[in-house]
Design a protein around this nucleic acid. Sequence first.
DNA 1: AATTATGATAAGGTTACCCTAATAAGGAGG
DNA 2: CCTCCTTATTAGGGTAACCTTATCATAATT
Lengths: 220, 220
Amino acid sequence: MSFRGEEDYIKQIFQLQCDNPSSAYVKTSELIQLTGHAAPSVNEMIKRLVSKGLLEYNRYVGVRLTSEGEHIAANIIKKHRLWETFLHDYLNYKWDEIHDEAEALEHITSDRLSEALYAFMAHPKTCPHGNPIEVSIDDQHDSEEILLINASTHHAYRIIRVKDTPDVLEYLDRIHLKPGTTIRINENDPFNEFIEIKNDDRTKTIGYRLAKSIVVKKLE
Amino acid sequence: MSFRGEEDYIKQIFQLQCDNPSSAYVKTSELIQLTGHAAPSVNEMIKRLVSKGLLEYNRYVGVRLTSEGEHIAANIIKKHRLWETFLHDYLNYKWDEIHDEAEALEHITSDRLSEALYAFMAHPKTCPHGNPIEVSIDDQHDSEEILLINASTHHAYRIIRVKDTPDVLEYLDRIHLKPGTTIRINENDPFNEFIEIKNDDRTKTIGYRLAKSIVVKKLE
DNA sequence: AATTATGATAAGGTTACCCTAATAAGGAGG
DNA sequence: CCTCCTTATTAGGGTAACCTTATCATAATT
Ligand SMILES: [Mn+2]
Ligand SMILES: [Mn+2]
Ligand SMILES: [Mn+2]
Ligand SMILES: [Mn+2]
């Protein structure tokens, strides 16, 4: 049986592995940071997951999901994003209000329910934040997709997905940027750490902190 | 904060109070029976709920919900039945498959989500088993509604609701009886403990065990 | 090589639920 | 009043997750 706590750890590890596919290992400190739990709690959980065969662990190096762990992670993430989509598209939730509900629903969703929801919504491709419903650790990196922070001046891009933290989402909502939106880079100023973009004939300035939360893809 | 275990106990106590409005108190033994937990577990939970002000307890007499306890119970039951309705009406679950999923979903459903679901389904009156979505301990007893076991020969009745245990539901499904169905009593034989009914021009025999799980209301 | 920073773990505590086995309290009948 | 049975409760234990505090082990810096 999988418990809520376990599943959240597995999910976080998966996300960290995806974010940084170069280094195969996720460091304990990253997990402490991301989960907000104390070091001994994280350590204890790592041992639990190792003993269940969901995790490999080398001390002072880090952890990595086993293929079973990966499978569980992808399954939960799918459930998470299905609920986000349902709440947003059918129950009129705003896109910054869906993550927390999904965070709880994902754990008590049977595979049966997951499939039924998926079919009910006619197999959506992505959640409202632009993240794919069906995930796999391998086919993660479409090399065309880059962080907005790395976009080049005078080129056009489409927003693919955005980081799903409430502050980011609320702000993006206010300035009318979302997955699918087309933008043009007027200027990328690494020294002053901002990017000036144009969309809807309006010019907007995006700081680097926010620009790291937006994934875009060059057009044509 | 309310936890899953607590909420299930509160709900069960509420149901027992409704089933038997004459005696105001629910005995510990009834709870042991219904929950399937060991006596000390039930005893411990009773004390927890008392200390939270959700329950009154007189030893060797039984327990009774406080008004706050009743309120919580009604709220969870509403969520339970909303999910049952959603699973049945929108996700094509059969009516004997919805209870267990709802049993888990009810606990992680915020009031916000509950209201959104309720509105999405256009404020249904009852769950697929015929139980009201909006519950209150007082307005429970429509005196016109009786158990099928007490129905009189040669009269017509409408099925109002049925007990939501999988075996009962599966059987009723096979013989095409559900809330809303109109039946006529050909014979009620207390000695042999069966009732012969007619619906859809077909005659069916219902044993008293099953007849206790069906609530009906006399027509005109 | 010595110091400092970081990372890992041990020890002990908490809360929500669950359990078994043993004991105590009430009520009915002799 | 005492015995028997039902019912209630105590005592003691377990697991999943969390915590704090203190003490290791290793890596990095000086
Ligand atoms: Mn999310
Ligand atoms: Mn979660
Ligand atoms: Mn039910
Ligand atoms: Mn439940």
